[in-house]
Amino acid sequence: MFSLSSFLDAFWPLTMAARYTLLVSGLGIALGLVIGAFVCVLALSKSRVWRTVAAVWVSYLRGVPMLVQLLVVFFLLPVIGIDVPAIVGAVVTTAIVASAYISEIWRGAIMALPKGQTEAAIAIGMRPRDSWTRIILPQAVALSIPQLINELILLVKASSLVSVVGVMEITRASQAQAGVTFRPLEAYLAAACLYLAINLCLAALGRWLEHRMAV
């Protein structure tokens, strides 16, 4: 039967473990934004070669399940002589996977801007660089905020997979809790509640940002 006390007891260790969930998804999105910006530049470049590189990058990362990519990175790192804790591999994989989605979000946002914006910038005599930094990018970033928050929510959920390589985040901690107390229902229910709480907060943040950035 359901035991309320073991359900409540599970929250403390899981909340501690939530730090790693937030670390993996937070660092993942931060690095993903940087790599994604590079990929986006490649995807919008005039050179066909760079565009192909970006297209292959995005297509591979979006076509392969995250769990498989995680294990590839996890087993690849030692082979190429990089000996780091599992959490580093987890963050790297998350960031790389996120970069594919983020570059597409930004490409979409930039393409969605009316052409008149660039034309107007040129018409009033802005240099190309200024038209990018002052006209295109601020608008594109504002446009992409809801989707970026959505991506972050997806990453929080995807970070549950890094439990497989032994990172003590919420899912792994709930497995440990279930193993100790023999109460899997309560442990996993508590984990689900924590994920839900994090994601509801992020969704609220997203709505607030969207409201603020609305022009």
């Binding site: 039967m1 959920k157 439990s163 899912t171 279930a178 229902l185 996993y188 689900a192 994601n199």
Partner: peptide, 19 residues
Amino acid sequence: RGTPFLVQLFLLYYGGPMI
């Protein structure tokens, strides 16, 4: 939509027998 698929599976597969 707010919870990971893996956790849902664990709930169903390991938590299910308890109910």
